[in-house]
């Protein structure tokens, strides 16, 4: 699905600039944006919200066998990052020495090519993160 054009296009806001949303009732930030706040449901009031561009690593793995489309990128780091507003996302960690990729490490967002599976097809750009200190 990584080469599917309308899907790539629909996700620009989310993938380029971390567009998510926020429940004004309970104060929880969601990324990606959710159609319903799972805690407040109909009492929830969701408003669009850009996510902060920094956070910390909650867990990580170094992938040595990647799925189709990523087979030549190995090894690469995948991490769950908790952003400064507590929303969490899964992302690749790039440009970071192995010793610095650890739980609790501070990371910042970068703009990268994420999926380029067809040399004649569309390129999917979006967020990755790197360890910042």
């Amino acid at each position: 699905m990584n080469g599917a054009l309308p899907l790539i296009w629909r996700k620009f806001g989310e993938r380029y600039d971390l567009d998510g949303n926020f429940c004004e009732t309970c104060g929880t930030a969601f990324f990606p944006a959710r159609p319903v706040c799972p805690s407040c449901r109909r009492r929830g009031k969701l408003v669009p919200k850009k996510m902060p561009k920094t956070g910390k690593i909650v867990s990580f793995t170094e992938v040595f066998t990647g799925p189709a489309g990523f087979e030549h990128e190995t090894p690469y780091f995948i991490a769950i990052v908790e952003l400064d507003n507590k929303a969490r996302l899964l992302t690749q960690i790039v440009d970071s020495e192995k010793e610095r990729v650890k739980i609790g490490a501070k990371v910042g967002k970068v703009f990268r090519k994420i999926s380029d599976i067809d040399p004649e097809g569309p390129i999917a750009y979006g967020y990755k993160f790197k360890v910042v200190c």
């Binding site: 699905m1 992938v63 995948i78 769950i80 690749q92 994420i114």
Partner: peptide, 15 residues
């Protein structure tokens, strides 16, 4: 939000 970023199944369980 997972497979798109190259998160294979072993990667998810590894996390």
């Amino acid at each position: 939000t997972e497979l798109f970023h190259g998160a294979s199944f072993p990667a998810l369980y590894a996390l």
